[in-house]
Design a binder for these strands. Structure first.
Lengths: 352, 352
DNA sequence: CTGAAAGCGCTTACAG
DNA sequence: CTGAAAGCGCTTACAG
């Protein structure tokens, strides 16, 4: 592969001059510039980004560590992140933690070794000293979706509490009284927050959320199935199940189908995270939709702000309930989104 | 961040010795080794992969350019690719072409600039001189799923012809005679091959595939909807529609649902690429399943063979029909997988 | 406007 | 076994 030396030789100038035209430095004569450009074209020269990064100490790459690539929520997030990053001149390297802290650390380490300019993370369950150390040591880090309390790191996320209240109101109106939740790992914020939101919303109706009605999953499909089977084996199974993410809902559907039960007559189901297929399931599934694209864009903006030396702010967007038929609504109805709530707090007080 | 110099100073040795213990070079005294290790631990030193890459001319990174991250088929592929690559000591950088040749080229260029050790590509429609030039110039390249004829590049893919024949037999048995296909872009092999396979299979039953029954999509959802609406507007709409990928099937479902039609009574639907949600749609959808994980693993094996100087072979695996109820089967039936066919051809004659 | 030179953080023959 | 030195491909003060 041609190097800058080859270009310099072909153009009859020094490598410094080649570098200058490549980097649009003003002080280059028109003549030199055109000879360099001609040589570049003739040789099909492309600057070696590795060498450039070593010299400039920037890679123009962002790391994105997500919980699970098989989760459509995260792929939609990844897509918007890449798009926003590209618009700002950065590329993104995705690491799939597969919901495993060890795999997450593997990716964080690899990304750090490769000297990415900044890190976007949706932390897997468990604590990650590695990640926190990196942030403390000065690597620009931003949390998306999930976050680790106490870290001096901006957080970009959706607050689902209002939507969960709307969901519980919907379930209550339809006569469901015995409500269960398939929770995510307690070691993640989304794992615990969604349970808390659900419990609080139930309390407003005087409904308790007993331990037997809180199943502990890991955000992946198999756990949703296992937990749902446990619910169905209860002496008194729940009327309605709320899955804290779409993959656990997939597992729940498997379990419900395997028992020959029918939704919503035998059991109702609602899900955190809306995906395109929920319109076409049997029955269509009531879900809480996050503004995923907006989250990705806001997260990139915050991270690039940090990278480029500006202050970054935490961002909290609103989620909303999308009513379909899986809980017993008579017909597909869309609760219109309320005026989008949007709170921003400076990073110093970034614990939302 | 601590550099190798800092470690050397802390350990009281030269940077050469530090480098040797880091790279497990045999000729280092036990004493030096332990002092270096202690210094590494004390400083939390991590070698700079950028500098190492510049020096060794290898990044231990693989590029993977896929058609669309929002397509569950590609994310499953990406997952198995990353897993297999990790087991061999490589990390993978995913580029999402979003089915656009220009975006594909952007990612190929970026990956090449970053000097990835090899490239796994499922080419977007249209020809990519950039990609072909890179392969010709010696960058290890392997095609997965889709490929470009005439290139001296190994191809790892599934052959769906037998499964398509099984599908047509299934449709014919159920009485469907007017069959349509939502094709992918003609500029991709999977776009054209699936139409050919379908046409050939129909011909065996004396059924023609007229132009009005071949809709041209782009493998994304919106096109599936548009094409399906066209089919439904025909004076004589088809009895059954075969979508060449799962996202176009999603669009087809949208169109069918919007007209208030019912599957399979009003119209049958079958899809290339099986995904977990197809068990739970209304009705469950008959699909052709690829051995996606195997494809990803075989592709990595082939690419790493090339990178490490061994010869790589093209691999063709078999796809299989999974019958559900969307075409009118009375009950869920699984056609047992036949003995897995597996053909391998040396790369020299890699045009499968 | 231009070039020689230093240096980014590593690895690796070479000499001892 | 160990270290001094060269060099990977760039960028960027510095001097002219």
């Amino acid at each position: 592969m041609a190097s800058i030396k080859d270009v310099a030789a072909a153009a009859g100038v020094s490598v410094a001059t080649v570098s200058r035209v490549l980097n649009a430095h003003p002080s280059v004569s028109a003549d030199a510039r055109s000879r360099v450009l001609a040589a570049v074209a003739a040789l099909g020269y492309r600057p070696n980004a590795v060498a450039r990064s070593l010299r400039t100490d920037q890679t123009h790459a962002l790391g994105l560590v997500i919980g699970d690539v098989l989760n459509p929520y995260f792929t939609e997030l990844a897509r918007s992140v890449e798009e926003a990053a590209r618009a700002l001149g950065y590329s993104v390297i995705i690491g799939n933690a597969d919901e495993r802290p060890d795999l997450q650390d593997h990716h964080v380490r690899t990304l750090l070794d490769r000297r990415i300019d900044g890190l976007l993370v949706s932390p897997a369950p468990g604590d990650s000293p590695l990640l926190l150390d990196a942030a403390r040591a000065g690597t620009p880090v931003v949390f998306v979706d999930r976050w680790i309390p106490g870290a001096e790191v901006p957080v970009v996320r959706a607050d689902g509490r209002r939507a969960v209240r709307d969901l519980v109101a919907h379930l209550h109106l339809l006569g469901h009284r015995r409500l269960a939740i398939i929770a995510g790992p307690a070691g993640t914020t989304t794992g615990s927050e969604r349970v808390t939101a659900f419990r609080d919303a139930l309390a407003a109706y005087g409904l308790p959320l007993t331990d037997e009605l809180v199943g502990h999953g890991d955000f992946q499909a198999a756990s949703g199935r296992r937990v749902t089977e446990g619910f169905l084996d209860l002496p008194e199974p729940p009327d309605a199940v709320f899955a804290a993410d779409n993959l656990m809902a997939l597992g729940a559907l498997d379990a419900i189908r395997a028992r020959g039960l029918r939704m919503p007559d035998d059991i109702a189901l609602a899900v955190f995270d809306d995906i395109p297929w929920f319109v076409h399931t049997d029955p269509p599934i009531t879900a809480i939709a996050q503004p995923t694209g907006d989250l990705g864009r806001a997260a990139v903006r915050a991270l690039v702000d940090r990278i480029e030396g500006r202050t970054a702010e935490s961002v909290t967007l609103d989620a909303r309930l999308v009513v379909r038929r899986s809980c017993g609504a008579p017909a597909p109805v869309l609760i219109p989104p309320t005026s989008p709530m949007r709170r921003s707090t400076p990073v110093q007080r970034s614990t939302p």
